[in-house]
């Protein structure tokens, strides 16, 4: 028996919004430690890794490890039927071929359940090595989203240059060129407004705007985003989900032809 409950459907809706543009389907691996999903996007350019800890749920029970392959478009249709302040419970029997989403209104007067067929997905899992990154940047998630959106107008690629003074995002194309420089902040009142750079070595890397913009769909989940970069290895864009876990996106830098 598997049962996971969140007192508020908003978080689950936001999580789905953060992955459904990149992935058509995904396998949710459930164990007593929580729920994990790892999947490459449809074109195998980026990787999404979602971790939701069991202790972050309002109720969590998983008697036996369970892998549930879900069509994320179908899941989105179902979650649209939940009000933001509904309690959502995900339920499945062991070895079941369906999963049930139950939504309960705050006053308990409306209870709805939606059963969805599970899919057998033959997805390969990638082993992600622990890496010490040359540069780790933490910045407001809204600011990162804004920069990715703005620079995508000028080029398919954005160059991220990180030194201890700051981080610079650049794009150039037919229209001209754009540069956005952010300095590390000191003594900001609010932690979520801080820009913090931990640098071992400076890096200059080029990434596809299209994927960075897809990652920023996770912005509503977190005030801050963390970018981890080293030469010649994939960038990690991480959004923490308060008290529940995190979503990480991996994207390899572009290389010279």
């Amino acid at each position: 028996m598997f049962e996971a409950r969140l007192n508020n459907a908003t978080t689950l809706k936001k999580i789905l919004d953060a992955i459904k543009d990149l992935l058509n389907e995904g396998t949710f691996d459930c164990s007593d430690s929580g729920i994990q999903l790892q999947a490459m996007d449809n074109s195998h350019v980026s990787l999404v890794s979602l971790t939701l800890r069991s202790d972050g749920f309002d109720k969590f029970r998983c008697d036996r490890n369970l892998s549930m392959g879900m069509n994320l478009g179908s899941m989105a249709k179902i979650l649209k039927c939940a009000n933001n302040d509904d309690t959502v419970t995900i339920k499945a029997q062991d070895n079941a071929d369906t999963v049930t989403f139950m939504f309960e209104s705050q006053n308990q007067e409306k209870v709805s359940d939606y059963e969805m067929k599970l899919m057998n997905l033959d997805q390969e899992h990638l082993g992600i090595p622990e890496t010490d990154y040359s540069c780790v940047v933490r910045m407001p998630a809204m600011e990162f989203a804004r920069i990715c959106r703005d620079l995508a107008q000028f080029s398919e690629s954005v160059v991220i240059c990180c030194t201890k003074e700051g981080v610079k995002f650049s794009a150039s194309g037919d229209v001209g060129s754009a540069n956005v420089k952010l300095a590390q902040t000191f003594n900001v009142d609010k932690e979520e407004e801080a820009i913090v750079i931990e640098m071992q070595e400076p890096v200059v890397l080029t990434f596809a705007c299209r994927y960075l913009n897809a990652f920023t769909k996770a912005t509503p989940l977190s005030n801050q985003v963390q970018l981890s970069m080293s030469a010649d290895v994939p960038l990690v864009v991480e959004y923490r989900i308060a008290e529940l876990g995190h979503i990480r996106y991996y994207l390899a830098p572009k290389i010279e032809d």
């Binding site: 490459m40 990638l126 596809a208 032809d257």
Partner: peptide
């Protein structure tokens, strides 16, 4: 510039 696949950076488990 070329965009490598993410799979080429991580090992298949």
């Amino acid at each position: 510039m070329a965009q490598p696949s993410i799979a080429s950076y991580f090992n298949t488990r």
